[in-house]
Amino acid sequence: MTRRLSLVALELWLPVVVLLGWWLWSAGAAEPFFPPLQEILTRFREMWLFEQFVSDVLPSLRNMAVGFGIASVVGIAVGLVLARVRLLREAFEPLMHFVRATPGVALVPIFILLLGFGPSMKISIIATAAVFPTIIATMDGVRSADPVLLDISRAYQLNRRQRVTKVLLPSAGPQIFAGLQVSLQVAFVVMIASEMLGSTEGIGALTLLAQQSFAVTDMWSGIVLLGLLGYLVNLLFLLARGRVLHWYDGARKAAKE
């Protein structure tokens, strides 16, 4: 018990010192760009809990969730097809690596020209930018499926649907989730970028507008919220991944021991 407590203390002392240091330093320093942490937290509560929660936080999260959802479904489906059909794969691979190498944020101006500043633009650009990591990871995962496994599923005369859902997708699972995690990060960045470029709605837009109008404390409270969201979204994803892939993590752990 004391061992556990000392472990927790060992892990937490530095974050606590950093936060305390920030609090004390910013309370005394008259730095215009670094307002007291206490004020930032007060503004954080006023802005996000819950005055602008419905008007700005929810739309941002909805756009990201819908965009990432579309990217996941389309990405896994397309990756699966490309892995199984050689001609399609050879035709699309160079193009796909090219598009993947193009930063999603650079496509935001084009999507604004095409679709304006509304949610449809934001969802489209999030889905478009986020789909490629999942496609490529799914394709690689399905292609590296154990040939013995495929022989067995043929010997047991599994039909196409069973082969996909019981053999191919599970065996590619770890790689698919690695791709999905990258897609999620891309979706989060593009969500912010799509709001920062000329939109007036959303957390990213409010944060950048606050910066441009020198509302420094508001900007900080936006940064804190975005930082927390970036961390939490990733954490949620890892929890979901752990649930789906517990068999894989267990097998790896057993193999290591």
């Binding site: 892990e11 530095l14 974050p15 944020v105 960045v189 910066q211 940064i223 975005l226 930082g227 970036g230």
Partner: peptide, 23 residues
């Protein structure tokens, strides 16, 4: 000592602190 700090900061994309840096 640094694990919590690094694990917290790592998934936060740099675009988040861009407004502060521009300021």
């Amino acid at each position: 000592s640094t694990r919590v700090l690094v694990e917290f900061l790592k998934p936060i994309p740099p675009i988040v602190i861009l407004p502060l840096l521009v300021l």
